[in-house]
Design a protein around this nucleic acid. Structure first.
Lengths: 210, 210
DNA sequence: CTCTCGTCTTGACAGCGTCAAGATAGAAGA
DNA sequence: TCTTCTATCTTGACGCTGTCAAGACGAGAG
């Protein structure tokens, strides 16, 4: 509805965009496992073989989708840290944004970090992943007061620790594993728990330049 | 080869076991995404519809496999903590065992924490997951000196933090995301990094009974 | 007006999960 | 010993999937 041009002719006009939109829906509804090229084509109103001309195969479409997913993740982290000046609080805000993304778009989160069914040589995917990583890295550097020191030793450990914490929390949450620990799965409980967990990220506890 | 009975008759004898063995191989080779019932049946030397009589559908077989995977994870954590008395070192050893499992059996790890394609109402799966969780919980309680206090507040946060750290590290490692941070992916570098990250798990830093 | 080329369709193929129906063989009962 | 029963496994079919080859279409260039 109200798309740019609802041209139903032989040539679609912006099929690539339409397929990505459809794929987004299919992914959200059916997950990575239930994702189907033909269903995407159906929703975009084209034949089953049309997607091949724009994305090659199913891996190509999922990879393009994953690149967009990374962009959304980056945006979620940026939005969360907006306006926060204190370096350590800023870092934790980014962590919250990371988990928020996973909660809001669970299937996108799963797709983006899915080893299979993704073309890891794709430049767009790689670049989008780098951008998300850079968001984390710069926050860590700021919080640790590391400037542009080489990313190694305790500084690297601090980064990987922070990343692991939020990544693991998000994954456990989506996998329903926190049910083991939290009987009451209310949103408020989750937020409170995340707050306590994120508070364990304390970059300047040690000398990051060691 | 040298299976119990190599009976090639109409009745297999221990087809359930044979299918699980075959499925283990298929999973390791092709991953969860490339897993197929028919390939399992082929390797077990039976018809394509035979697995249905023992596992219902593909979800049933994967769920049975996941239960076994949880058992392996539990064993890996137990083996890692064996003989270690110091509570905090014991907890970190369990974390190392967790990551070791993921490195040794990447597809099992992915399967076990896969929300889709698994029957979460299955009692065997639930029990096996509970056992793995109990390993972590008891170690946390010991390290925090919490006795049998209710699992909430800072104690709960400590548990979820420790779990998130190792779970996130394992996932990032398997997803190849640590390539962003570590150019040299040598095994020694990974181990050293994991050691530094795991050392961030410090249960008695605060009052766990708060 | 014609040609060309990128875009999309049609049709086919093998592989997949699942279901229904039938074949088999070991065990249980006469 | 012979029969019957029942769990186990096979066969065949269905619609779905991804992918490929060939052809139809249409817009823009010459």
């Amino acid at each position: 509805m109200a798309r740019k041009t609802e041209a139903a002719g032989y040539h679609h006009g912006d099929l690539r965009r339409a397929l990505l939109d459809a794929a987004e829906l299919v992914l959200a509804e059916r997950g990575v496992a239930g994702f189907t090229l033909r269903e995407c084509a159906r929703r975009a109103g084209v034949s089953h073989a049309a997607p091949a001309h724009h994305f090659g195969d199913v891996t190509g479409l999922l990879t393009a989708l994953a690149a967009l997913g990374f962009a959304t993740l980056t945006a979620s982290m940026r939005e969360a840290r907006e306006g926060i000046e204190d370096p350590r609080e800023r870092l934790r805000a980014i962590g919250r944004g990371y988990v928020t993304f996973a909660q809001r778009y669970p299937e996108r989160f799963r797709l983006v970090f899915n080893w299979h069914r993704l073309n890891h040589d794709d430049p767009a995917l790689h670049e989008a992943g780098e951008a998300a990583f850079a968001e984390l890295e710069s926050a860590i550097r700021l919080a640790a007061g590391a400037g542009d020191a080489p990313l190694e030793g305790e500084l690297l450990a601090e980064l990987v620790h922070a990343w692991s914490v939020v990544h693991g929390f998000a994954h456990l949450l989506l996998a329903g594993q926190l049910d083991h620990a939290i009987p009451d799965q209310g949103e408020a409980h989750i937020v409170a728990l995340l707050e306590r967990v994120v508070s364990r990220i304390e970059p300047s506890r040690r000398d990051p330049t060691a």
